[in-house]
């Protein structure tokens, strides 16, 4: 108990001693603010130049934004997912980001004036290249393959990566998506609620492939000197996801929030992303990427639905997914 009050006290005193320094409150997903995410480095880098106190508040973003509504206490929100921006936009809580996004280093042009990307990545299947030497080179080949590969995927109803996979299949197979899922079904070892369980099953050797990101092998190479993990690259292109940042319109630290928004597109922020988030920075010259990232194979094409398309497709695609796998 003593420790708890102490902790609460420390938090209070930390807030009060810094009262004269302006505080910028940024909502972020749990992974972002944790010791292993990019949060701590971003905080240090921004505070070095802003004379302010950057505070991350972590948790499930959308539920929190929706629950707080107009009384939201954030100045900015970082880590929103491209596939749910429609819902976020409709809250009316966000102001235009005001940054020039014409020179982003992303495979698609960015025109959204409210949400601004800070990192992005391709979805992909990751496998152990010592066990699979004939990895499929297209989704079509993968779906029709006679190989007895077992894959672990995530549930699109509870995980963003699961949602991305569902939309990827939809964008590649269109009206035949359900048939593709039915062909894929025997290869699906199981479906997990989140990315962590699935990836754990893969690294434990339980599954031959896991649905993750094409940048996942970079972690194993850079952090573990392990070269056995590769991502299969498909000819049809890969569904991409980007993580976004938005500025809260009602922020009392509007200028500071603007400063943070422009900081995000600087190298100081962007260079933290590859090894902080194991994904591609939204605006960083290729030669500034770590060597491992430069050498990662990339898909020939990036697929991404607009937020209207994604929102409209979600329920029918989910029906197909459930019908194909729910037997």
């Amino acid at each position: 108990m003593k420790h708890l009050t102490l902790a609460a006290g420390l938090m209070l005193s930390a807030t009060s001693t810094l009262a004269e320094t302006p505080v910028l409150t940024v909502y972020a997903p749990d992974y972002f603010g944790s010791e292993w995410g990019p949060g701590p480095a971003v905080e240090a880098a921004f505070e070095a130049e802003c004379a302010c106190d950057l505070q991350f508040v972590t948790g499930d973003l959308m539920p929190r934004i929706m629950l707080e509504g107009a009384r939201i206490k954030a100045d900015a929100v970082i880590g929103l997912n491209t596939d749910v921006t429609k819902q976020a936009r409709e809250t009316g809580l966000f102001a235009p980001h005001g940054q020039d996004t014409s020179a982003l280093t992303m495979p698609i042009a960015w025109t959204d004036e409210v949400f601004m990307p800070f990192n992005w990545g391709y979805s992909g299947f990751v496998y152990d290249n010592t066990k699979i030497t004939n990895a499929p080179t297209s989704f079509e080949e993968f779906v029709n393959s006679d190989e007895d590969w077992k894959i672990v995927i995530q549930d699109p109803r509870s995980s963003f990566s699961g949602l991305a996979l569902m939309l990827w299949v939809k964008s590649v197979f269109g009206d035949d998506a359900q048939m593709a899922w039915e062909k894929l079904a025997p290869k699906i070892l199981t479906v997990t609620a989140g990315w962590s369980e699935a990836y754990g099953m893969f690294t434990d050797g339980e599954a031959d492939m896991v649905f993750s990101y094409t940048t996942s092998p970079a972690y194993h190479i850079m952090a573990e000197d392990d070269l056995t993990k590769s991502a299969a690259i498909f000819d049809e292109g890969h569904y991409m996801t980007a993580e976004l940042v938005g500025k809260i319109a009602s922020s009392e630290q509007s200028e500071l929030a603007d400063e943070f928004m422009s900081f995000i597109l600087t190298d100081a922020f962007q260079t933290i992303i590859p090894e902080g988030n194991w994904s591609y920075p939204a605006k960083l010259d290729f030669e500034k990427l770590p060597e491992t990232f430069q050498n990662l194979p990339t898909p020939p094409k990036a697929l991404l639905y607009s937020e209207e398309e994604a929102a409209a497709l979600r329920d029918p695609a989910l029906e197909e997914w459930l019908s194909a796998l729910g037997r």
Binding site: A185, I188, T190, V191, T192, W321, L325, R327
Partner: peptide, 8 residues
């Protein structure tokens, strides 16, 4: 979910 093998 994880051991059930799918959305069923």
């Amino acid at each position: 979910l994880a051991l059930g093998g799918g959305p069923q």
